[in-house]
Nucleic acid binder design. Sequence first.
DNA 1: ATGAAAGCGCTAACAA
DNA 2: TTGTTAGCGCTTTCAT
Lengths: 343, 343
Amino acid sequence: MPDQKNKMVTTKDVAEVAKVSVSTVGRALADDPRISEQTKTRVKQVATQLGYVENLPARLMRGGRSNLIGLMLPDIRNAFYATIAEALSDCCSAKGHQLALSLANDPQTEARHIKELVSARAAGMVIVPSVHPTRESLALLKNLPHVQLLRRAASIGAASFGINDEASIHEGTRHLLELGHRRIAYVGGTEELSTGRDRVAGYRRAMREFGIGADQMIEILGPASSPEFGTQAIADLLASPDRPTAVLVSTVRITQAILEYLHERGMASPETLSVVGFGDSPEFKWWGPGLTTLRMPIEELATSCALWLFHQLEVGATTDPKYHSTVPATLIVRGSTAPCVSP
Amino acid sequence: MPDQKNKMVTTKDVAEVAKVSVSTVGRALADDPRISEQTKTRVKQVATQLGYVENLPARLMRGGRSNLIGLMLPDIRNAFYATIAEALSDCCSAKGHQLALSLANDPQTEARHIKELVSARAAGMVIVPSVHPTRESLALLKNLPHVQLLRRAASIGAASFGINDEASIHEGTRHLLELGHRRIAYVGGTEELSTGRDRVAGYRRAMREFGIGADQMIEILGPASSPEFGTQAIADLLASPDRPTAVLVSTVRITQAILEYLHERGMASPETLSVVGFGDSPEFKWWGPGLTTLRMPIEELATSCALWLFHQLEVGATTDPKYHSTVPATLIVRGSTAPCVSP
DNA sequence: ATGAAAGCGCTAACAA
DNA sequence: TTGTTAGCGCTTTCAT
């Protein structure tokens, strides 16, 4: 553990040793054409020798923004978000940016992190917004170029990149309907979140298209990333008098919880229940007969999101294009869904 | 997307509007006891009204370090590291720190990220070091309080927190030996990494203790986080003339690759092969008969690592305690290991 | 090709 | 209780 009070080497120190002025040092290190090659070489040599490292805060004081890119996620242990973090980190590295990771599940924490980023004069941020960003968050975001990812808060007037949630869930539901299922349960996040709204809408549309009324729909909505909620939901479903023949899950964490529950109770799929999951992880292949699931191009999504943000940073982003991009999911059919055999 | 050129509100602006001096503003916002409650309230009100956000770089220029804590990881998609990131993020939030995530697999990228952290005057960092940190990295770390996590590079003279790798793998190997296995293969990372060295050492010790000579040991070493290597390794093992009756895997990623391989080929465990995995994820329970594996208290490890770092930051860390802490793994016995029935 | 000096926003020592 | 001022390390005119 090094001594913290260790004075750092400054341009002034370098200047003294190299016997030039501070401005010459600054210019030499910035490869200014006005400085002779000879001086440049000498200055750089001295700088390295002394272990000079530029003082970013001091430079930032003269205006401009730091190379920090904020990434606000609800949960890094979710494979979805980990993939996003990795893709974004790659993009940042390529552009010389530094990633600041903020994990927030509630609007207050979110606001605090945004404030810190603004305070640090971050260059921009990628945010998966919470349900109801605070007024403060919204005001702060006015001073920070940003892009929304996955979720979309209407109150935030920025470009957004997401999954086509409605169409994805619609496809999953239709798959079950075409297999003859009619008592199909939907388990997912609440309608507070844009994603929750869109997803349940996809379920409803598919059901309606097969002539199933709202009274026949089985919807269990709760906290999107709560395994406990998922466990409770599947338990309730299986215990209900007219238990469904199939279930469609619409979040990663709930999917994992349900898979775990069914496995622990030794309840075989698709015999007991046909299951359509959300997201795709390697282990979904070896869960029971293999999980039929919706795969999303998360990595590509995060990359295009980053590219767009960087582009905005470069061009200065004076306009407000309100660009909204969505990508579709792919249904991966495995063993967990089978034709309905119930009455 | 907001206008980037938007001038930010400074203390001077607040001072003008509130009709006080800049220092009064600074003190009022810092809750200095010398300022009257009345003035404080007014200044704070004006600051909020104007949307004032402190300029962190400017404050840092006066010396001291930022609230940035760097976290250097090889791979955020590995559940191990994601858990660490989350635990650390929680600790940082609690202490008002901001997490800067750096993903680096090679010494050059690692060096670049460390330099950026030093340049940004980060408060400290938690690092899972690469095999051979560059000379530059080592020099830079002298100016940045840090702690090593999981891996330990001898060249870095800092406190370290890790798994007791030798003992853990020893326990896993002994479990197989006690089940009667003798042809036990070890698949893990190379001996370049401290973890790789310790782990294979645990395997060797256990084997020796059961009277098995070095010539009877089956070791396949390669890149620790390469699924491709894992796939190749298990393929080779199964194709070999005297195929082992059991395999012990010593990294998370290789474990995942091997599980996938065996599942895809429909090779049942423990009939074909007894398997002891590394790490523990929910899905290990439902892989085939359930994976016997070594579970590590990663979250606790990361937390204690963060606590230690924060403590060092607080006390100033003038001494160099070279504190090394290791926690043991727990063997979780499931269905993938069974008594040896081969000749 | 190089140097001197101003100023970025903030804090703290010194004044009042 | 509040104001004045110096200076942190760097870039950027403006001089030389």
